[in-house]
Amino acid sequence: MPPLTRWYLKTALVYLVLALTAGVLLALRALVPLPTATAGLTPVYFHLLMVGWVTQLIFGVVFWMFPKQSQTRPRGSEPLGWASYGLLNLGLALRAIGELWMTATPGSVPGTLLAVSAVLQWLAGLGFVLNTWGRVKER
């Protein structure tokens, strides 16, 4: 398994634990008083699960298992692969922080954080698509 896949899969596992922990907090909100910021946990929970866990797991396995692009560049561009990994995770982490911050104290700083997170995750998605496209081919 290539190093980038190992990073994707291990980070995905961390996000799985974080997402399910967020789910526990969401359920607890109905039972015990929790900080105001936790009211913003619903989109965080969903995106930690769907982007942090599911998407990241898929990205890692696709990078590992899809047909080789060529003899010289078997997995496409390694730097683009690493860039997608970094952008996705930085973007997702900023989103989680931004959503909770925005819920607790709405303002331009958490708003900007969400906007930056949007751009980072978008670039990550496009980077993955570009790097994978050439590996989806008939024999």
Binding site: G98, M102, G111, T112, L114, A115, S117, A118, V119, W122
Partner: peptide, 11 residues
């Protein structure tokens, strides 16, 4: 679309 939605949420 997700990026546009999040961008619009922040700014």
């Amino acid at each position: 679309l997700g990026a546009l939605l999040l961008l619009n949420k922040g700014l």
